[in-house]
């Protein structure tokens, strides 16, 4: 229990929140990594997955990508990228690693979402004279929405977690509070950092669940029935 009170004490000490190595700065770094990488990953993965799902091709790629991604240790990629010449460009190795690990959940879920749209609904839409574009925008996309959001959520969780690991490869983010705590054998600081990282992950997931519900294109329709 000492560690818990110690951690709370660490968290309530104002000095720990200020400065370059303070919580606020580390949190800003963490959110910056997460935001930028998610945006880039979405720009790459979503159009590709939705297009593949719409034309019904490339399923093996979309599904296997997740399985391959699972076998590759994030830590190894972070460290490998840091040691390549890319490592001289500041945050670049971390950003690339985060994008790489954000893509599989987005791609796989969006693809499966598109493919799981009831074929008879798509046929009916075609029969009503909808163009391919209309079928995509008005039928497939709204029906695939829940899984696209699931993909976005797991991808975000993944990125928040990987951004914490970037600290082990010497990069910034909230993970630095933990790794520094380990380096100086300060258990309260380690636990305080863990509470911050874990709290951020749960908070981000909660926010995404709420956004997902709020933006659901089917929300008003089901309510009206």
């Amino acid at each position: 229990m000492n560690a818990i009170t110690g951690a709370l004490e660490w968290l309530t000490t104002g000095a720990n929140w200020q400065g370059e190595k303070g919580v606020l700065n580390r949190l800003a770094e963490h959110l910056y990594f997460t935001g930028v990488c998610l945006a880039v990953a979405c720009l790459i993965a979503l159009p590709l997955a939705l297009w593949l799902g719409h034309i019904g091709k490339g399923g093996a790629l979309a599904v296997n990508l997740s399985n391959v991604g699972r076998a590759i240790p994030t830590l190894a990629i972070l460290v490998l990228l840091t040691m390549t010449p890319l490592g001289r460009h500041g945050d670049l190795p971390t950003l690339i690693a985060l994008v790489l690990f954000a893509i599989p959940p987005l791609l796989t879920n969006a693809y499966i979402g598109m493919r799981e749209v009831d074929r008879s609904v798509v046929e009916a839409a075609r029969g009503m004279g909808m163009s391919g574009r209309q079928v995509f925008l008005r039928v497939e996309l709204p029906l695939a929405y829940p899984l696209i959001m699931t993909g976005l959520r797991s991808s975000t969780v993944q990125v928040v977690a990987t951004a914490a690991l970037a600290a082990m490869a010497g990069e910034g983010g909230l993970g630095r509070i933990i790794t520094y705590g380990f380096a100086v054998q300060n258990t309260p600081q380690v636990v305080a950092g863990a509470i911050l990282v874990g709290g951020l992950a749960l908070l981000v997931e909660l926010v995404l669940v709420l956004i997902g519900k709020w933006c659901d294109p089917m929300r008003r329709r089901t309510a009206a029935v």
């Binding site: 000492n2 560690a3 818990i4 969780v157 928040v160 977690a161 990987t162 914490a164 690991l165 600290a167 082990m168 993970g175 933990i178 790794t179 705590g181 380990f182 258990t187 380690v190 636990v191 950092g193 863990a194 509470i195 990282v197 874990g198 992950a201 749960l202 997931e205």
Partner: peptide
């Protein structure tokens, strides 16, 4: 499921004490 969203670095650190 909630356990799954906790980043690994945080999980191992929380178990340290």
């Amino acid at each position: 499921t909630a356990l799954y969203s906790i980043p690994s670095l945080a999980m191992f650190s929380l178990l340290l004490p």
